[in-house]
Design a protein around this nucleic acid. Sequence first.
DNA 1: TCTCGGCTGGACATTACTTCA
DNA 2: GATGAAGTAATGTCCAGCCGA
Length: 305
Amino acid sequence: MSFHDTSNTGLGLGLGLGLVSFHDQSENCMKSTNDPLREIHKIKKVENPSKCNSTYPSLTLGPPDDDDDDDDEVNNQPPSSKTESYEYFRPHVSSPSAVSSFSNYSSIKRERDQVLWEKEFEVEVEKVPTRVGDVDEDGNPRKKLRLTKEQAAVLEENFREHSTLNPKQKQELAMKLNLRARQVEVWFQNRRARTKLKQTESDCELLKKCCDTLTEENKKLQKELQELKSIQATPMPLYMQIPAATLCICPSCERICGGNNNSDGGNNNNGSSHTTSLLIGSKTHHHSFYKSNKYPFPHSSSAAC
DNA sequence: TCTCGGCTGGACATTACTTCA
DNA sequence: GATGAAGTAATGTCCAGCCGA
């Protein structure tokens, strides 16, 4: 059973409605897909991107001029200095930069962070693809890289220690794995999402079992009730008429019991301490139910029985 | 002290690519 | 080889919290 199927269990775990993307506004440049990056790559290959700029004349969310120079990515010239290295990669690494006019603030911010970080640590990350197969025939790295087993193992190990990273840990891990900090950040985000999804799935399974068990229990009780009603319809023999003073009501199940609960020393088979329950005709007493492993949730008042 | 705007990180929904049966 | 499902890297958006003006 998939996670989404669980909405049919009636357990109220359905998901909300999705968001309406504003990508659809990009009628001229992104009509065929919701992925502006993919579309931009196509555009860059076949035609002058400036044709699309007219569609977004006002979306100029690019980084400030002091640390950015978009001319580099247009010309796609190799960097002349270390500080320009990231610009050299921007068109194909974390590609939103190539389409800054389409990007939101987050993309810009992350790019700027990356540039600043590389400047600070005097490193250049992913100047070459990490693996041979990551380059297509045009020499552009694939949009999506598969992490190596070693990288995934290290990330997994770190995730076990702490599911979130502070900026320093993120940078260190990125350097260690020769990844961008953004990649580490994304991996942890996705990893948290997967963990939560699995937890939700297991919770749902648990609730479903619980629901099934309660349904079964309900059937038994209904049957028991029917038996009681049938007994009530027939006159009770005199020897079964126990004086009311000797009776008590179990606080847990509110059933009428005999006065002395310890009369048999608690040695009854089903774990119940009731000795002279008046549920005549009932073959099972369900107080033991909540004490068993059949029922996953603790029964707060089960101790009374 | 309160308010407002910018910034940040996380959650979430979604897309697109990769792998595998 | 084609295909569909599953896994997952990556992106975009929203939101809450923090901080300085």
